[in-house]
Amino acid sequence: MSEAFDIIKAHYAASDRGDLDGMVEAFAPDVAWIEMDGFPYAGTYVGTDAIKSGVFERLGREWKGFSADMEELVDGGDGTVVGIGHYSGTYRATGRSMRVRFVHVWRVRGGKVTGFEQFTDTHGVRAAMD
Rank of each mutant, 00 (worst) to 15 (best):
residue 99 R to T: 00
residue 41 Y to L: 14
residue 88 S to G: 14
residue 116 F to Y: 02
residue 15 S to K: 13
residue 126 R to T: 07
residue 68 A to W: 04
residue 120 T to A: 10
residue 108 V to K: 05
residue 105 V to Y: 04
residue 116 F to D: 12
residue 125 V to F: 07
residue 107 R to E: 07
residue 14 A to I: 00
residue 108 V to N: 01
residue 58 R to E: 03
residue 87 Y to R: 09
residue 25 E to L: 06
residue 83 G to M: 03
residue 53 S to R: 14
residue 60 G to C: 15
residue 124 G to Q: 08
residue 9 K to M: 11
residue 37 D to M: 13
residue 98 M to K: 15
residue 113 V to Y: 10
residue 78 D to V: 03
residue 62 E to R: 03
residue 50 A to M: 12
residue 55 V to N: 08
residue 19 D to E: 02
residue 26 A to E: 04
residue 20 L to R: 03
residue 20 L to H: 10
residue 82 V to S: 04
residue 98 M to C: 11
residue 38 G to V: 13
residue 59 L to S: 03
residue 54 G to P: 06
residue 36 M to L: 11
residue 7 I to M: 01
residue 45 Y to F: 07
residue 110 G to Y: 02
residue 113 V to E: 08
residue 60 G to I: 15
residue 103 V to G: 02
residue 94 T to R: 14
residue 79 G to V: 11
residue 82 V to F: 09
residue 98 M to L: 15
residue 98 M to E: 07
residue 119 F to M: 14
residue 89 G to S: 14
residue 120 T to M: 03
residue 59 L to R: 05
residue 122 T to F: 05
residue 80 T to V: 10
residue 80 T to G: 02
residue 27 F to H: 10
residue 85 G to S: 01
residue 55 V to Y: 13
residue 101 R to S: 05
residue 50 A to T: 10
residue 78 D to M: 12
residue 92 R to Q: 02
residue 124 G to A: 13
residue 21 D to A: 10
residue 21 D to G: 14
residue 71 E to S: 05
residue 26 A to P: 07
residue 43 G to W: 13
residue 64 K to G: 12
residue 51 I to A: 12
residue 84 I to G: 02
residue 102 F to V: 05
residue 21 D to W: 04
residue 19 D to W: 05
residue 94 T to C: 08
residue 121 D to E: 05
residue 121 D to I: 06
residue 43 G to Y: 09
residue 22 G to S: 00
residue 121 D to Y: 13
residue 54 G to E: 03
residue 122 T to A: 06
residue 7 I to G: 00
residue 88 S to E: 04
residue 44 T to Q: 12
residue 101 R to I: 14
residue 69 D to H: 10
residue 100 V to P: 09
residue 20 L to T: 05
residue 48 T to D: 09
residue 40 P to L: 01
residue 36 M to S: 04
residue 110 G to F: 07
residue 95 G to F: 10
residue 84 I to Q: 02
residue 75 D to Q: 02
residue 53 S to E: 06
residue 24 V to L: 14
residue 111 G to D: 12
residue 38 G to T: 08
residue 78 D to Q: 13
residue 85 G to M: 03
residue 53 S to G: 11
residue 45 Y to R: 13
residue 64 K to N: 15
residue 28 A to P: 11
residue 125 V to G: 14
residue 68 A to D: 04
residue 51 I to T: 09
residue 82 V to N: 04
residue 82 V to M: 09
residue 109 R to A: 12
residue 42 A to R: 10
residue 71 E to P: 09
residue 63 W to C: 14
residue 13 A to H: 03
residue 71 E to H: 15
residue 95 G to C: 11
residue 124 G to N: 05
residue 9 K to F: 12
residue 53 S to I: 14
residue 64 K to P: 10
residue 109 R to D: 01
residue 29 P to A: 08
residue 105 V to T: 09
residue 84 I to E: 00
residue 13 A to N: 06
residue 125 V to S: 07
residue 57 E to T: 12
residue 106 W to N: 04
residue 97 S to G: 04
residue 49 D to S: 15
residue 26 A to W: 04
residue 42 A to I: 11
residue 19 D to A: 07
residue 60 G to P: 07
residue 106 W to S: 06
residue 104 H to W: 00
residue 35 E to R: 04
residue 83 G to T: 02
residue 107 R to T: 08
residue 9 K to E: 06
residue 75 D to N: 09
residue 102 F to S: 03
residue 35 E to T: 04
residue 21 D to M: 13
residue 14 A to N: 03
residue 48 T to C: 10
residue 119 F to P: 02
residue 122 T to K: 00
residue 87 Y to G: 02
residue 9 K to R: 11
